[in-house]
């Protein structure tokens, strides 16, 4: 698998660390809604097809990326920085 890192260009899977499902949302830190916390920490859909996930370019620029990957073909459909500020032209400078 090759992941095109917006900083570094296409790089081999071995340079990246999988950092989990990017569709989950962390509840407010003070939230006591246990179901929301269980969903955030444990409950994962296992979709067949496109899936949003976090990958860190840990062997490169160390940025966290939001990667949309097809779980059937491993095709990389899109890549963006997880830190939204980095996706703007300003952020990239």
């Amino acid at each position: 698998m090759l992941i095109p890192c917006p900083h570094c260009g296409p790089r081999d899977l071995a340079e990246f660390s999988y950092q989990g499902d990017a569709t989950r949302v962390r509840p407010d830190p003070a939230s006591t809604d246990m179901k929301a916390w269980y969903d955030y920490v444990y409950n994962r859909p296992n979709p067949s097809g496109p899936h949003r996930e976090y990958w860190q370019h840990s062997g490169g620029c160390r940025a966290h990326l939001v990667v949309v990957r097809d779980t059937l073909s491993h095709e990389i459909i899109s890549v963006a920085f997880a830190h939204a500020g980095l996706n703007t032209a300003e952020g990239r400078q």
Binding site: S17, Q19, Q56, R62, F81, A82
Partner: peptide
């Protein structure tokens, strides 16, 4: 280090 980077990049950017 990775733990800190994750929260700064993803949870509390």
């Amino acid at each position: 280090m990775q733990h800190l980077e994750y929260y700064l990049d993803v949870v509390w950017p």
